[in-house]
């Protein structure tokens, strides 16, 4: 069971308090009607499914109940860092 640092609680907490919420930094378009079918399909369905460092959304469901963003390694499963919603997208170190 992983330990996940909740950026709101500022604590390492057990994984079972959290739930995964898909890839991060995919903002809902402000004016969906302006999008072509292809663009809308891209927003709805296309995800990067990355091997290695991956930007993810997590929810501290049984904790502070906040969604936050994380950079996680999909190979080792481990979290590199977590940060609050609205903060800039974490850069992946080369």
């Amino acid at each position: 069971m992983l330990l996940i640092k909740c950026p709101y609680c500022q604590e390492d907490r057990p994984e079972i308090e959290f739930s995964y919420s898909g890839e991060a930094h995919i903002a809902r378009p402000l004016n969906p009607d302006d999008l072509s079918d292809e663009e809308w399909a891209e927003y709805l369905f296309i995800r990067s499914n990355r091997r290695g460092l991956h930007h993810e959304r997590w929810l501290h469901a049984h904790g502070c109940a906040r969604f936050f963003n994380a950079l996680r390694d999909t190979v080792s499963d481990k979290f590199e860092l977590t940060y609050k919603m609205g903060e800039p997208k974490a850069q992946v170190k080369k």
Partner: peptide
């Protein structure tokens, strides 16, 4: 509830 919270917190803060 979770979906509503998701939109509230992350799309329309």
């Amino acid at each position: 509830f979770r979906m509503m919270e998701d939109y509230r917190q992350t799309e329309w803060p």
